[in-house]
Structure formats: structure tokens, C-alpha cells
Write a protein that binds this DNA or RNA. Structure first.
Lengths: 146, 146
DNA sequence: CATGGATACGTGTATATGCACCTATCACTG
DNA sequence: CAGTGATAGGTGCATATACACGTATCCATG
């Protein structure tokens, strides 16, 4: 852990460590754990997350979907591609606004999500054994604040 | 925060939330913060991290470098490409083992790292105002354990 | 109704990430 | 020393991520 102890006895963390790098590493480790659990379903955790949002919220314009996932708009647009190609998501024109395109779950998408849920839950449980989900949420909240 | 309160009064976090997704989101937010701070240097936080390791450890075979960064071997190999193209890192044959290729910092790389340090430190400080670096380290440690 | 700012989106480019599969080299062992 | 398992790398492929820049549409206002 490279913990140093300063003059006054307060332990300080090695300033060498890039906190961002450490956080990215944690995210990679968690991603690997989930992706392995989801492997039988052919979904990745990123894709699962998108399906989950669409399931909870119903059809959404791409930009709003991106906002819900805290993803860059164009990133979300591209992340929809593989899902659309596999027929899990459908993107259609918005009748009310010609600029907007609505993303929505197909029946196959709903089925894929349902099938993936148990696998996801297993990963979720295994992660919870290692870290407190609440503290992860708090972390993300502190970072996302405006 | 979507906090629910169960029968017995214990607050439980919305099980709907994918802890992995939340963690990935936090990593994206931190990355954006660092990348913006590093922008004047033309480095990204991922690249900075690699330079930092090479600076601390000296020349390393790609596989060992990847292990230090907790990155997949082939990912590290590819992440070296832009650094090599810009002349910040040099990859040479290992005289002692024809299979191995050593990655090392060039003079330009050392200079780039030195120039980036203040910007990185600013991001590091700004992040520390929002979250406890120690808790992030603990999180990563819990996730990386075996 | 013309127009200008705001909004929704797409594309090009570059990096980041990891899996599957392949080759080359090394070190050990019979 | 031949053979074999372990080790170091490389490539193809697919997805994930975001910035810069451009286009289409909407809406408020003059």
C-alpha cells in the first residue's frame, strides 16, 4: 500500500499514486468480474447497464439516455450500435421532434435482460462481498456532483 | 440517491443499481477531471500513469509493465504505441532474452513527465477535495486481491 | 414569417480495453 | 541434444470512450 508516516504520526498515502489510475484500475477489475459472470449471456456489463436503463425508463432520446448513464452523448450513440445489430434495442424517429431519435428495448432485448439478471446478480453479490456498494455509490456521487 | 428504507429501518441502496456501472461512472468522471488538467501537456492520465511507472522502475519488459499497471498485456502493448510514436518511450530488444522487449523512458519522456507533474498534482488535489484517496486505494486493493 | 440561438444528432479520428489465437524463445528433462 | 511445457510477444477483432466539427431541426422574437 506504500503508506508513509509523516513527522506528526499521521499516515499519508504515497503521493506517487495517481488516485485516478487507482480508480480506473478498480473499475477494470469490477468490469472483468461482471463480464465474466455475464459471458454466457453474450452481454457486457456496459450493454447490460444500457438495457437496464431502457427497461426502467422506457423509450428515451439518445441524449437523455446518455445523461442517465453519465456517458458522453456520442459514446452512448456508438454503444447502442452492437445492441441494435443484435436486435436488442430499436432506435426510431421521434414523431414529436424530427431531431430526436428514440431508443427502446425490443422484445428480444427484454428477454436478454431477463436472462442476464441472475448472472448479473451473482456478480453484484460477489462484488458486495469485497466492497461496500454504498461507499461506491457515495464515491460516484461525490465525483458526479456538478 | 434512490435510497430505500426497508421494514426494519435499515437504509438499503436501490438494488437496481449496478455497482460496477457506478464504479465505471466514477472512473469516467475522474478521468475527465485529470484529462482536462493534463490537456496543456498533450498527455492523458493513462499515458501519464505509464510514464510514471517507467520513471519509478526503469526499463521493464512489456508484460511486467502491464502487471504493474494491472492492465491486460496486449492493452499495455497498444497503449505504448502513441507514446512511442511521440518519442516519449522507447521499446528495445532485451539482450538477455530474445522473447522480451524492454520499454523505457526517453529523455523527452522524462521531460514530458516532469512538465506534466504540476498539472497532474492539481487534478490530484482537486479530486482529493471530493473523495478520500485512501478509501479509493482501499477499494482498489479489495478488488485486486488475488 | 424570417432569423438566430439552442438543441439533437452523426461522423472522423484517436485512444483504451480485453479476448482468441498464433509464433518465437527459453528452460528443463529424459 | 531432442522434445516439451512455460513464457514473452504480436495480430485480428470487437467494444468503449470522448473530442472536434458539421448538419438538421426547433423555438422564440422581432
Amino acid at each position: 500500500m506504500h503508506i508513509h508516516v509523516s513527522m506528526n504520526g499521521t499516515p499519508t498515502y504515497e503521493s506517487d499514486f495517481c488516485t485516478c489510475g487507482v480508480l480506473r484500475r478498480a473499475a477494470r477489475a469490477a468490469t472483468a468480474l461482471y463480464d465474466q459472470a455475464l459471458r454466457p449471456t453474450g452481454l457486457r456489463v456496459t450493454q447490460f447497464a444500457i438495457l437496464k436503463i431502457l427497461d426502467r425508463c422506457g423509450p428515451l432520446p439518445v441524449t437523455r439516455l446518455a445523461a442517465k448513464a453519465a456517458l458522453e452523448r456520442t459514446t452512448m450513440a456508438r454503444n447502442l450500435d452492437p445492441l441494435e445489430r443484435r436486435g436488442l434495442v430499436r432506435v426510431t424517429a421521434d414523431a414529436a421532434d424530427a431531431r430526436s431519435r428514440l431508443a427502446e428495448l425490443t422484445e428480444e432485448g427484454r428477454a436478454a435482460l431477463a436472462g442476464a439478471l441472475p448472472h448479473w446478480q451473482r456478480a453484484q453479490d460477489r462484488l458486495a462481498q469485497r466492497v461496500d456498494p454504498g461507499s461506491v455509490q457515495a464515491l460516484a456521487a461525490a465525483l458526479s456532483a456538478e
